[in-house]
């Protein structure tokens, strides 16, 4: 157990070096601040541009919040897909990680810890920009902390689990790995109620969206932080139903992520694709 923790720590240390050490510290801090700030402002600009009038403040705050937390998905889910690409193509170290006792799953887990921390930092910055620059506020006394904490924890677990699935796809499909990462980022952005409520999706797509943990996660975070969600379809669900659905979806994706990752890794190992470099 102690050895496993030491390995996880070394993988996290590696992730920290790679994710933060590519520029000098000042440039990195500027980038880390500007990126989420720009994301928040672009969203605000887009929203006001497409609305013929200033939108209902509550709805915009809900969507803004969803957008902030979507940072976890882009950083962790898509980031874990990029870890495979980096290890295999850029650093050409994947086979050495894979054949070491650390193993690729532990490396992915360790490096995803850093991505979670960076995502959390981004969420805080975006929320601060919303609060101070865009006056998107809420009543802190009304925040339901236990439910919010539980939802946050479930969402983080779901995020890492789906990340493993994306990493597995990257192992099996070296050539289209970039397209998979980018395509998935866009698909999740549009389908999970990040910038518009899922009620605007076609009915069949709504069913898929409701099966994804991120849709339920964003709704839960909105409800327990703001007091309301963004989707009319989910708004009549009780808190217990929403949390139960989020827990079930998370559990399902933990299983799918774990089984899927190992199935994809085994298939990649069978086909000899683990160290197949294609890009650089």
């Amino acid at each position: 157990m102690r050895a496993a923790i030491a390995r996880l720590r070394s993988a996290a240390w590696l992730g920290w070096q790679i994710d933060t050490n590519w520029a000098d510290p000042f440039l990195f801090i500027v980038y880390s601040l500007l990126r989420p700030i720009a994301t928040g402002l672009i969203l605000a600009g887009m929203y006001w541009a497409v609305s013929s009038r200033v939108p209902a403040r509550g709805m915009f705050t809900a969507l803004y919040l969803g957008n902030a937390f979507h940072n976890f998905v882009t950083q962790v889910v898509i980031g874990m897909g990029w870890i495979v690409l980096e290890e295999r193509e850029e650093y050409e170290t994947l086979k050495y990680v894979f054949t070491s006792p650390l193993g690729l799953p532990m490396c992915l887990a360790g490096r995803s810890v850093v991505k979670l921390a960076i995502a959390m930092f981004g969420v805080v910055v975006v929320m601060a920009v919303g609060w101070f620059a865009l006056h998107l506020t809420w009543d802190w006394r009304e925040v339901r902390w236990p439910e919010l904490s539980l939802a946050l924890a479930l969402g983080v677990v779901a995020t890492v689990s789906v990340g493993f699935l994306v990493a597995g796809l990257g192992l099996l499909l070296p050539r289209p790995a970039i397209q998979i990462n980018e395509g998935l980022a866009v698909a999740l952005y549009l389908m999970c109620g990040v910038i518009f409520p899922i009620d605007l999706l076609p009915a069949w797509l709504q069913s898929i969206a409701l099966a994804l943990p991120f849709t339920l996660w964003y709704e839960a975070l909105r409800r327990f932080l703001l007091g309301h969600g963004a989707s009319a379809r989910i708004s009549h669900w009780s808190d217990a139903t929403l949390l139960g659905a989020l827990a079930l979806s998370t559990l399902a994706f933990v299983a799918i992520g774990r089984l899927g990752y190992f199935a994809l890794e085994t298939r990649a190992r069978r086909l000899g694709r683990l160290d197949q470099t294609t890009l650089f």
């Binding site: 590696l14 070096q17 790679i18 650093y91 050409e92 170290t93 086979k95 050495y96 054949t99 070491s100």
Partner: peptide, 15 residues
């Protein structure tokens, strides 16, 4: 085990 493949320049450039 450990593996060394020659002719490779693999490594984490930032380290």
């Amino acid at each position: 085990i450990s593996l060394v493949s020659g002719g490779e320049t693999s490594g984490y450039g930032v380290l």
